[in-house]
Every structure is written in C-alpha cells, then in structure tokens.
Design a protein around this nucleic acid. Structure first.
Lengths: 168, 168
DNA sequence: ATGACAAGGTTACATATGAAACCATTGTGC
DNA sequence: GCACAATGGTTTCATATGTAACCTTGTCAT
C-alpha cells in the first residue's frame, strides 16, 4: 500500500466515497440482473416494475414512477415490454381514460415469485458478510446519506451553500 | 408507514439493499457530475481519467482500464474527448509503438486542481452527516461487500453455491 | 359550452454504452 | 526470417437511455 499524498490537491479515486459507492452498487446490480435476465429475459427496469406490481395491483404508470425513482419514459418502455411478454395486463381506468391500470398476469406473478427468492438470496449473501451491528449501521448510514442527497437536489445547489442548513 | 408483508414471497423494493445502494450511488454521482460537467464540460468517464492522471503521469490506456474499472472502449472515448479539449497529451511509447503514454496538459492540470476541491466538498458534506464511528463502519462495510461481489464475479456463480466458501 | 391549461403516456431524436470486429504492432515457435 | 498468436487501441453496430415534442383526455374558469 503506497500511502499517496492525501492533501486537498490530490484525490485517490479508490478512496473517494462517491466513486466507491458507484462501483459497488453497479457491480451488485449487474450481478443480480445477470441472474434474472438470463433466466427470464427481464431488464432491470422491467424487473423493478414487476417488483412493485407484485406488492400492489392496479397501479398506473405514474404510480410506478413515484415508487421506483425511474422516469416515465423508462416506465413506459418497461411496461411495453412486459405487456408483450404477457407478464402484465393493462386496462383503461374507467374513471379517467388517460390512465391505465396495470396488474401482473398469472404468468407474471409466477415469474415474480421465482425471482423473489433469487433476489433475496443475493441480498442475504451480502448481509451475511456483515455483523448485526454493521447491518443496522449500514441501514442508518444509507438513510442519512440519502436524506442529504435529497437536500442537494431540492435546493439545487452545491453542498457549500448547504453547510449551514443541517437543520432542514 | 404501512408495515407490508415481509415474508419470502414479497419484496419491498425500498428496503432491498441492492436497490437502495444503486439509487443512492447514482444520485450522488449524478449530483457531483452535474457540478463539474456544467463548469468544465466533462463526462463522468472523462473526469475519472483525469482523476487518475492527476496522480500519475505517463499512463497507458490499459493502465487506465485497470485503475478505473471502466472498459477499454469507454477509456478510448474519454481519452479522445480529453485530447480534443487539450486536457491531456498523448505520445507514442518509444519502446512499444502500440502503446501511447498519456499525461495531463497544463490546462488539464489546472482543471483537475479546480475540480478536486469541488469533489472533496461533496464527499465531505456526505461524511459530515455521519459520526466518526459511522464513517469507519461505512468504510469497512463497503470493503466487505466489495470483496464479496468480487467473489461472485470470480466464481461466476450465484451466492447459493458460494455459501460454503466464506473462507476464500 | 368552450378555450386554456394540466396530466397521463407514447414517440422521436440525439447521445451513451457495450460487445464484437477490426487494424497495427509486437512477441513466439520453428 | 516468417507464419501465427497476443496485445494495445479504435471503430462499428446494436441497444439503452434521457429530453423534448407530441397526442389524448380531463379540469377549470369564464
């Protein structure tokens, strides 16, 4: 381990938290996606839509947007592909014909229920690397970081100008 | 907070660790990228290349691949755009004319040194949300998780088949 | 009613990305 | 030396993604 200079004018990418998180998260997501895409030909967005519909029926595309943090174009495309695969069923909302209500088909539910244990298996394997304390800590830490990022986005400013607003 | 069923046949996306990490990391990266791309017109891959070259001169594209976890096509494109912006300089390696050696230009180094504090500011703002203990814990946790993901990739198998090999 | 504007979704376009084919150079076996 | 494999990098092509334009249906004030 060569201890590089770590002053303000240097930056070791491998020690830079945002970089580390990005690499870690992408590799985890990619590994899991590999598992279910090879078995069920689902993309990540399509799987996320199914995951939400597995918990709640008769959702609109807008509901999916708010529950998945994906934009509406991605939802639209994921829905289109799931319709073609006959994993979900769509019908117009009689009360508002701009909306359509989405539900898993039996086939979709079957696939859903086969992916769940797969996904949980990966997650559990990761959690098994951590002590109980670590698991609790990780949960708290990600929540804190997420809250802060949301503040960045809400205020649409850089952290320097936020440094006083710890109390928001 | 409606406490949903949390048995093996259901999955609350918002509580699914890989999903949370993915959303968190992407939003952090995006926010930071927004800051330097708007100021300096750099993409994420281009910035990563500069970050590495800021620490070490005369690297080849292959060196960049191994130091950034990006594939060689991404490196090639980032290098091309940085050359056009005159942020880096390229010369053939006299010992092996397949290789070329990359170095920041004065202009590139200037931009580099203006991005560093910006990047550190965001990172520090995130770390400021955490206690000292949390910061240490996060570092350990990400290291542990990363090691495990590398095992997944190395063995090219799903975690079920790895569960005995905690000792690798 | 009716015209302006908002909401739900889809389509079109421009850009980003990755896998595989490719070109040039170097190393290797004979 | 000379075929042939391996290495370093770039280009091509097919796919993925985001932004903006768009179409349809609803809402609201007049």
């Amino acid at each position: 381990m060569t201890t590089e200079k770590n002053d303000a004018t240097q930056l070791q990418l491998a020690d830079f938290l945002p970089y580390k998180l990005s690499i870690l998260a992408n590799r985890i997501s990619y590994a899991i996606a590999e598992a279910y895409s090879s078995r069920f030909h689902l993309t990540i967005p399509a799987w996320r839509v199914m995951a939400v519909l597995g918990l709640e029926d008769n959702l609109t595309a807008a509901d999916l947007v708010s529950r998945t943090a994906m934009d509406k174009v991605a939802i639209s495309r994921a829905v289109a592909s799931l319709l073609e695969m006959e994993c979900i069923h769509r019908e117009l909302d009689p009360d508002d014909r701009r909306r359509s209500l989405l539900t898993l088909t039996p086939k979709g539910r079957d696939i859903y229920q086969r992916i769940i244990p797969l996904a949980r298996c990966y997650e559990q394997d990761l959690l098994n690397q951590l002590s109980e304390d670590d698991q609790r800590a990780l949960k708290q830490i990600t929540n804190k970081l997420m809250k802060r990022v949301q503040q960045w986005e809400k205020h649409n400013v850089n952290p320097a100008s936020l440094q006083e607003t710890q109390d928001v």
